[in-house]
Simulated scan of single mutants.
Amino acid sequence: MISERGRVVAEKGDQVWVQTIRETACQSCSARQGCGQRALASVTSGRANQILVENHLNARVGDEVTVSISESALLHASLWVYAVPLSALVTGAVLGQQLAPGSDSLAIVLASLGLGLGFWLVSRHQRTASSRFQPRLQGIENLP
């Protein structure tokens, strides 16, 4: 499980908005010099991120909570978001080159259509499997 601590900043029905700041984890990481996450945190100046999670623990505004997502769900979602559109783009470009050798225009058109199809497939898959990829509240931290 990949976990992050945050604070509940708002309630929305059966869900809560949790605010997290990733920059704190970068200070203790041994790979901080070559990490893209650290570069991203420095660009955003440690700006807080907010995520909407189901509130099955009855957390209230101001509570410190732990939010987590499984590694397999993150990997699966990453593959869908990156690999599916890229594969569809490459397939469209190769198909365009096969149908009209020497003409790049058909390859460009089919690559664009493939990319659009890939994004559409990701969007459709996200709607049907969204609960599997959602972070979950793991616990409420005891505050002194």
Rank of each mutant, 00 (worst) to 15 (best):
L117S: 10
C29Y: 00
S72P: 09
Q98E: 11
S72K: 15
Q98V: 09
P101G: 01
R22Q: 13
S28E: 14
E141P: 06
T24H: 12
G139V: 03
W120S: 06
A31R: 13
I140W: 12
P85T: 02
E23G: 12
A93L: 10
G6V: 02
R124N: 06
V84A: 01
G102T: 03
S42W: 13
C29M: 06
L121W: 11
S28T: 12
R7I: 10
K12I: 09
T128H: 07
G46A: 09
T128S: 14
R136T: 12
I2K: 07
Q19V: 11
R127S: 08
S130Q: 12
R60Q: 15
S103G: 13
S70T: 13
V65L: 05
D63V: 04
W120Q: 10
L95S: 05
A31S: 10
V61E: 06
L79K: 09
L137C: 08
Q15F: 08
G46K: 02
E54Y: 12
A31P: 02
L89G: 04
A88W: 04
G102N: 04
K12S: 13
A111V: 02
G118Q: 00
Q27L: 13
Q126I: 08
Y82L: 03
A100R: 14
E71T: 10
E64H: 12
L110T: 01
N49G: 09
Q134K: 12
H56R: 15
R127W: 07
R127T: 07
A59R: 04
I69R: 09
A88C: 11
I51K: 06
E141G: 11
E11F: 05
V53W: 03
A111L: 00
K12R: 14
V84I: 13
L137W: 05
G139W: 02
S87C: 10
L143H: 15
L117V: 10
V90N: 00
L74Y: 08
R60K: 15
G114V: 01
I2C: 00
S130C: 14
N55P: 04
A10K: 08
N49I: 13
I2S: 01
L79G: 15
T91W: 09
R124S: 07
L75G: 06
L74T: 09
V94L: 06
S42D: 15
L75A: 07
T91V: 14
G6H: 02
S3R: 15
W17M: 05
Y82A: 01
T24C: 11
Q27P: 06
S105W: 13
F119D: 05
L57H: 05
Q27S: 15
A59E: 01
Q138D: 15
N49Q: 15
N55G: 03
E141F: 10
Q27W: 04
E23A: 15
V94K: 06
S131R: 11
S70C: 04
V67Y: 07
A93R: 01
A31V: 13
L89D: 00
L99M: 11
I51C: 05
L115S: 03
R32G: 07
V53Y: 08
C35L: 01
S130I: 14
G6Q: 06
A10G: 02
H125E: 12
A39E: 12
P85H: 02
Q138Y: 03
N55Y: 03
A10S: 08
C29L: 07
W120L: 14
G36S: 07
R7A: 04
G92L: 00
E64Y: 15
I108N: 12
N55K: 00
G118C: 01
I2G: 05
G118N: 03
S30I: 08
I51E: 00
R32P: 01
